[in-house]
Amino acid sequence: MGKIVSFATQKGGSGKSTLTLLLSTCLAVDYKLKIAVLDCDYQQSIVKTRIHMDAANLEQLRETDPEANYPYDIFPMAMTKIFDFIDNPENDKYDLVILDLPGRADGNEIFDALTACDVVFVPLVSDYLDRASTADFMGILHSIKSVADKEGIAFAYYGLSTKRTNRREDREMDEYIDEIGLSRLNSSLGLRAAYSRPSTLFSLLNPAYLRYAGGDKTVSEEIKTLCEEIIEKLELPVHQLTTAKNESAE
C-alpha cells in the first residue's frame, strides 16, 4: 500500500473536499501518480462532482479519443470500510490513497479513520472560529501521534494555509500557528475563484481548463508548488511534470 493521507479538520467549510479534488487531479494527471480517493463524507461531494460535472466532459473526450478515462479512482465508502480497503492486496497498486472525511471529529469512527493515515494535512483558514477549531483538532492529532510514536508507527500532521488574502487575519493565523507549534507546509493557496471549480477530470495545470475556471499563472504556480512539496513530504515516486493537452472543458 502506498501513502495514506487526509485533508481533515473538524470544522465544515474549510475546503478539505476542494483540496482533495484539486490535488488528486493534478497529482494524477500531471505527475502520473496512481491515486485512489475514498469519499467517506456524508455529503459525497467528490462522487457528485464526478457524476454531475465530469461525466459529460468525459463522454465528449471519448468522441475523439475512445480510450479517454478518468485519471484516478474514486470510491464512495463508509468509514467502517476504510481498513478493509487498506488491507486488500489488490489496492497495493496505488501510490497515494486520500481519505475525504466528514468535517467533524466527534466520534470513534473519525478517530479510527485518522489513525489509518500516514499524514494528515489540516486546512488553516484565518478567522477566529477556524483558529479555535484547529486547536481542538490539534489535540486529537497529538494524541494519535503520541500513541503512534510509542508503537513505532509513522504518523505526522501539517497545517496547510488556504483562502489567504494577505489580511490582518492571515497574519494573526500565522502567529497563532507558531504559538501552538503546528508544523506547516511552506506552500499555501490564496482565495481564488478558480479553486471553486475543481474537477476530477481536468487539472488546473491544463491551460485550457485553467482559463475556463477563471484562473491565471498565479493559480497554476500555487498548485504546482503545493503538489511538489507534498510529493517531497510523502516521499512519493517522482515523475517528470507532463505538459497537459489542450483539452476543452465546456
Rank of each mutant, 00 (worst) to 15 (best):
G2K: 07
K3S: 02
V5H: 04
T9C: 14
Q10D: 07
Q10K: 14
K11H: 04
G15W: 11
S17W: 11
S17I: 01
T18A: 09
L19K: 11
T20Q: 11
L21A: 06
L22E: 03
S24F: 09
T25W: 08
L27T: 06
L27Y: 09
K32Y: 11
K34L: 04
I35R: 07
D39C: 07
Y42G: 11
Q43S: 00
S45A: 03
I46D: 06
I46N: 02
V47L: 10
V47T: 14
K48I: 11
T49Q: 13
R50W: 01
Q60K: 13
E63P: 03
T64N: 12
D65Q: 14
D65I: 12
P66G: 02
E67Q: 15
N69R: 10
N69I: 01
Y70I: 04
Y72M: 05
D73N: 15
F75Q: 06
A78N: 12
M79G: 04
F83V: 08
F85N: 00
I86Y: 09
I86R: 10
I86V: 10
E90Q: 12
N91Y: 00
N91H: 03
K93V: 14
K93S: 09
D95V: 10
D95T: 09
L96V: 06
V97Y: 11
I98C: 10
I98W: 10
D100N: 03
D100E: 04
D100S: 03
D100P: 02
L101F: 10
R104E: 15
D106A: 05
G107T: 05
I110T: 10
I110S: 04
F111Q: 06
F111R: 09
F111L: 13
D112W: 04
A113S: 13
T115H: 12
A116T: 13
A116H: 09
C117R: 04
V119I: 06
V119E: 06
F121C: 13
V122D: 03
V122K: 05
V122M: 12
P123R: 03
V125P: 02
D127I: 02
Y128N: 10
R131K: 06
A132M: 05
A132V: 04
A132N: 02
A135W: 04
D136E: 06
M138Y: 05
I140D: 05
H142F: 14
K145H: 07
S146P: 02
S146Y: 15
K150D: 11
Y157L: 07
G159K: 07
K163I: 05
N166E: 05
E169Q: 15
M173F: 15
E175H: 11
Y176H: 14
E179M: 10
L182G: 01
S183I: 09
S183H: 12
R184I: 01
S187E: 05
G190T: 14
L191E: 12
L191D: 13
S196T: 15
R197L: 11
P198C: 02
L201S: 03
F202P: 00
F202H: 14
F202M: 12
F202L: 12
L205R: 03
N206R: 07
P207F: 10
L210R: 02
R211H: 07
A213T: 00
G214D: 00
G215I: 01
G215E: 00
G215L: 01
D216A: 04
T218F: 15
T218V: 13
T218D: 14
S220W: 08
E221T: 15
E222R: 13
E222Y: 15
C227Y: 05
E228N: 07
E228W: 11
I231T: 06
L234N: 01
L234Q: 01
L236T: 01
T243S: 10
S248P: 07
